[in-house]
């Protein structure tokens, strides 16, 4: 790998821009797509590898190529700068997620409680909408306060985010479902919300709950059967 290719990979990462590294295995020649124009079959394979976030192999004119996607980090938006968030944030960082914490309550969302983390103090619907959750984003609400959680959930429901989770008991969630239904969200949309949040590992402490949430985010991302749960019989 040349210094130029390495620098271009690092620049793409810093700019959160998806690129695919194409390596000819016979001699190690490399191109970065889409920065460099390549033969159409290679470009096609590169686009597919990025879309599927999976490496691929291609033989073109008798030459073997390795197609290596480099997508921007998955994102996690945590609404509520609470105790569970303090446990969840470092775990999510370790799992490779880019994390943002949203909480208009400045006493909670402090740099001391979340060192080095991007903190947003806007109202939660504006904040989540501005972050523009996409298919590589998970949104988790943890405030346990409908005034803060509901607007964030409403913003998340209008996005393509791959995971929405909301802290709160079954009873709390049943009331939430009623409010969101009243606000005009379909049952199908509301069913996107994982609640009570997290895989059922009988978690008790804040770090255990954080672990169950992160496990459910990963399970959803990877399409694990564990992440599918029957609709809540409220």
């Amino acid at each position: 790998m040349t210094p130029e290719v390495l620098a271009a990979l690092e620049a793409a990462k810093a700019a959160k821009r998806p690129v695919a590294l194409l390596t000819r295995l016979s001699d190690g020649a490399q191109h970065l797509w889409p920065d460099t124009e390549v033969a159409p079959p290679l470009a096609e394979a590169a686009a597919k590898a990025l879309a599927e976030d999976a490496a691929a192999n291609l033989t073109l004119d008798g030459q073997a190529w390795f197609i290596h996607p480099h997508n921007p980090a998955l994102r996690l938006i945590v609404v509520g700068a609470v105790h569970i968030a303090q446990a969840l944030v470092p775990m999510a960082l370790a799992a490779g997620y880019a994390v943002t914490v949203v909480d208009p309550r400045r006493a909670w969302a402090t740099a001391e409680r979340f060192p080095g983390i991007t903190l947003i103090h806007e109202w939660t619907d504006d904040a989540v909408a501005a972050l523009a959750p996409d298919a590589r984003t998970a949104v988790v609400t943890l405030t346990h306060d409908p005034k803060l959680d509901d607007p964030a959930l409403e913003a998340a429901l209008t996005s393509d985010c791959f995971y929405i989770g909301a802290l709160g008991s079954r009873r709390t969630h049943a009331k939430r479902v009623a409010r969101l239904t009243e606000a005009g969200h379909s049952a199908e949309a509301i069913a996107r919300i994982h609640a009570p949040v997290g895989l059922n590992i009988e978690a008790v402490t804040a770090p255990e709950i954080a672990l169950s949430i992160l496990a459910e985010v990963v399970a959803t991302r990877r399409g694990a059967a564990l992440a599918r749960r029957p609709a809540l019989a409220a």
Partner: peptide, 12 residues
């Protein structure tokens, strides 16, 4: 760059 069967780490 390529795996078959039960490899612990994926391509890439």
């Amino acid at each position: 760059v390529e795996t078959w069967g039960s490899s612990p780490r994926p391509a890439g």
